[in-house]
Design a binder for these strands. Sequence first.
DNA 1: TCTTGATAGTGTATAATATACACTTATTAG
DNA 2: CTAATAAGTGTATATTATACACTATCAAGA
Lengths: 219, 219
Amino acid sequence: MIFSADFAVATDIVVFSILNQELMVLLVKRGSAPFEGAWALPGGFVRPNEGLESCARRELEEETGLSDLYLEQLYSFGDVDRDARGRVLSVAYLALMRAGSHKATAARDAADSQWIAVSRLPKLAFDHDKILDMAGNRLTTKIKYSSLALQLMPDEFTLAELQQVHEILSGRALDKRNFRKQVAAQNVVIETGYERIAGAHRPAALYRAVHGRDVVYLE
Amino acid sequence: MIFSADFAVATDIVVFSILNQELMVLLVKRGSAPFEGAWALPGGFVRPNEGLESCARRELEEETGLSDLYLEQLYSFGDVDRDARGRVLSVAYLALMRAGSHKATAARDAADSQWIAVSRLPKLAFDHDKILDMAGNRLTTKIKYSSLALQLMPDEFTLAELQQVHEILSGRALDKRNFRKQVAAQNVVIETGYERIAGAHRPAALYRAVHGRDVVYLE
DNA sequence: TCTTGATAGTGTATAATATACACTTATTAG
DNA sequence: CTAATAAGTGTATATTATACACTATCAAGA
């Protein structure tokens, strides 16, 4: 070996989801030092024969019971002193969970994993504040030029629900008619033909993502 | 140590520059196995007490004699089999060199480093083709919504020169008057007050980047 | 010194896109 | 059958993007 192999490599995952009109992130409570008892991003060390994204998916499944999420690589954090135990490089991932599948979180050691509103975050372990901040920025900027927001929606959804998600992420109210015109022009959703009847009012048409779980870029 | 520390971490740098109206990338010829004699991206292993970006800058200086470039992290490549010698994670960086400083490249072991036109690339070592491809995409998309292209310009430049760079990167001709209106509206360049006299024609006003070596995002 | 050739520099009209804005429709509950 | 609630729709205006052609300044050379 002509090179030194003395890094540990980990993945950390920032999982966002919308719950009760709020942007939530999934955190785990650390069970051991360092930062024992503190909140941290789910994640863990990459195994010798495991790819980076595979590691992220496995750690998510193990620590939080979640599987089958949208996942994209975010950034790598490799400051010399970011982990007191040694030299640890973390490859951070941004993950999005479809609304309505929150029950899965209750699986396994769920007592130690919890959805927390991004607007009410505790101080996190390691440099996880920085990672989460970068993930939030990626999310809010990328919804403007891609179909990323659809990854937060259930398989079928109404346009009013999609608009709400955009409003939560952009932090401002959107005009209903203009929003619908834009969505129609983007060709990323299509009517399923079914309707949702939900109360004493006109039923809403249901839509689904044209490109399934792929993210497309809008011209 | 409660975790396995058996990764080698490297940085690889995709340095772009414009030379004679062409987009060029700086490659080095490998002097040892694996891929001995093949072209590769400059880069090398991160030292125990060295940050990722510091490593990228040091390797660039050592292998190509270049310093003081614009640098941004691109993506991390960690496939299990990407290096036959062992498990190597590479953090790739995108670097841009200001035009007119090419002489620096002739320094040191320059025989083994060379600017090659992106349109006439050889097959590269490792997964460096993939890395270079991703860097090219980042560059060409990002110039549309940021002041990134200014990092390819010398300290002082004319608007015609800036337009040429945009035309090379976007691959299409731009209208002179519209280009100048856009540039003026972006507030990222300012006249220096000097002119460049270059031949039997009206001299061109010289401009410089308002934000120096920082990249700003255009609304 | 006058003509030619070369690049710098400038404005306007039209098309396309984005924004602001209010009423009608379908349904359930009482 | 009336009231309440959310779904669904179009148009006029403002803003932004595009297409397009001539004048200005200089150096070289006749």
